[in-house]
Structure formats: C-alpha cells, structure tokens
Design a protein around this nucleic acid. Structure first.
Lengths: 166, 166
DNA sequence: CCACTTTATGTCGTGCACGATATAAATATG
DNA sequence: CATATTTATATCGTGCACGACATAAAGTGG
C-alpha cells in the first residue's frame, strides 16, 4: 500500500501564524488533491468495467441505465436523469443508442405528451441481469474488505450530498 | 445528511446459507454502488470547479496539467501522463489546445528526438498560480472538516492503488 | 379562453477519455 | 552494421458530459 497519509489538501494560509507555513508554498501537488483522487479513481473503475461490459456491448453509463431501469420499469427520462444526476443533453443520445441496440423502448407517456416512459426490451432485461452479476467481479477487482468499501461508498455519498448532488 | 449506511454493495450470494439472501434478489440498486458514488462525485466536483475555472479559460483536466507542470517544469508528455494516468491520445489534443491558448510550449527534447518537454509560458505560470488558489474554494465547497477530507482522499487513493492505478 | 411561465425533451458544438492504429526515433540483438 | 523490437508521440473514430439554445406541451393567472 503506497500511501502517504494526510498531506495538506490545499495551501490555504494558516490563519494565526504566518511564519510557519504548514502548507506548500507554490500550491497543491496533484497527489494532494481529493478531486484528483476521485477523478482518477473514476477512470480506474471504468478500466475495470470495460472488459466486463464490452462483451455485453455496453458502456459504463449504459450499464447504469440498465441497473436503474431494472428496478424502476416505466421510469421517465427525467426520473432517470435525477437518479443518475445527468441532463437530457447527455441522456437523449445515450438512450437513442440503447434503443437502436434494442435494449429499451421510449414509449409515449399517456399522462403527459411531452414525456416518454422507458421500458427494457426482453434483450435489455437479459442484459441487465447479466450486468447485475458483474458487480461482484468489480468488488473483487476493487480489493480490500467489504466493510471498507461500504464505508467508503457512504462517505463518498456524504461528500456528494454536501456538494449539492441529487 | 440523507444517508442509509452500509447497504450491500453487490448481490454476491452468501456462501453458507442459500435460503436467506442477505442481498437484494434482482441485482444491486444504483445507490448501492461504490462505483456510481465515485462516478457521480466526479461530476459534482466538475460542476464545482467549472464556474471557478471558466473565468481562467480552463477546463478541469487543463487545471490538473497546470498544477502538475508548476511543480515539474520541463516534464515530458509521458511523465505527465503517468502522473495523471492518461494516455497520449487524451493528452496530445489537450496539450495542443493549451499550446494554442499560449499556456505552454512543447519544446523538443535534446536527449530524445521522439520526445517533447513541456514548459509553462509566462501566462501559463500566472494562470497556474491563480488555479492553485481556487483549490481552497473547492475545499470550502466540499464541506465537512479537513480531517474527513484528507482521510477520504487517502482511502480513495488506496482504492486506486488496489485497482492497479499508477 | 388567452397570454405567460414552467417543464420535458431534443439539438448542437466543444472537450475530454480511450481503443485501435500509425510513425519515427531509440534501443537491442544477431 | 543491419534488422528487430521497443518506445514516445500523434491520429482517428466513438461515446460520453455539458453549456447554450430550441420546441412543444403543461400549467397558471387574469
């Protein structure tokens, strides 16, 4: 475990004592930044998922859509967007690609002519089931014990909600 | 703090007792997934950075490049890629845009004709200094106390290294 | 019922990420 | 030294993200 714990995260000057900078003089290093850790962990996760999702013809965001629709059939695009914290400018093209791949349908909403409901096709449902199974492999790939991973998830989610995410 | 701690992260069947699934029957929910927490936290962070970086004419990856070059002047593209865990197919266009914006130069490496060294222009150095300062605002925006954030960073980095990231 | 506003979705342009592939220079090997 | 391999960078195509903008259908207030 190569890890140098608790280096400063920013170089905000210490309020009281000016002459003893506990913080690097010319700004933070990449390795100091929590935002970089998250940014880069996200890339690493994508790399972990890709070889497992590629055989299913799925990208990572598409995997998330399948997971979500499996638990919320007939969801609107807006509701999906709220769950994934994505806008329609991201979702519309993504969903179109998935519809073209016969994974889902965007059917009119009888309650509201502006809206569409999302339902998995049979293929989509099968794919969603397989996709759900690979999660275990990912947990494997992430290493560490389960307690740690669950705790980390909760802390990251706490950070998300402090940042005003949905 | 809306938070339901320690729901299961995957639905790997409990080894011993088949008849009492401690894990949801039809796969994980979005909110169960550590990978989604990280994926989404990354988006939230980008949203936090954007209004601060836009006035400097920077994107988030460009901000990272400036931070890195500030501490490692004359770095090669490869070295930068190792630090940011990015390939040249990402970096080359990004660096070209930054060169066009007069933030840096890609000068020939006298040691190796294949390679190029990266140096900040004067504008780039000024921008890097300003960029370093906004980190404090981000820490502000992330909320929570500093201890928590530093600990979180170290845990995320530990996860990164378990996933085989640089 | 008629503007006015809000809401659900879509379109467009830009900038990442990244797999696949290309190219030229450095290095290794016979 | 000639060939083979490796290495540093670049190119191309696809799929996100997302700001800015467009459109049509609800809703809302006179």
């Amino acid at each position: 475990m190569t890890q140098t714990p608790n280096k400063p995260i920013s170089h905000a000057p210490a309020q009281g004592q000016q002459n003893q900078p506990a913080i690097p003089p010319d700004g933070p290093e990449i390795s100091d930044l929590l935002c970089f850790a998250i940014y880069s962990a996200n890339h690493a996760l994508t790399r972990l998922y890709r070889p497992l999702l590629a055989p299913l013809g799925l990208t990572y965001p598409q995997y998330l859509v399948l997971i979500s629709l499996r638990h919320n059939p007939g969801q609107t695009i807006k509701a999906l967007g709220q769950q994934l914290d994505l806008e329609t400018n991201t979702l519309t093209p993504l969903l179109k690609r998935m519809e073209e791949a016969e994974l889902l349908r965007r059917v009119p909403n009888p309650q509201d002519d502006r809206s569409r409901l999302l339902e998995l096709t049979e293929t989509g449902a099968e794919r969603a089931a397989k996709a759900g199974e690979i999660t275990a492999c990912i947990v494997e790939g992430m290493g560490g014990d389960l307690e740690e991973l669950l705790d980390l998830r909760d802390r990251v989610n706490a950070l998300r909600s402090r940042m005003g995410a949905t």
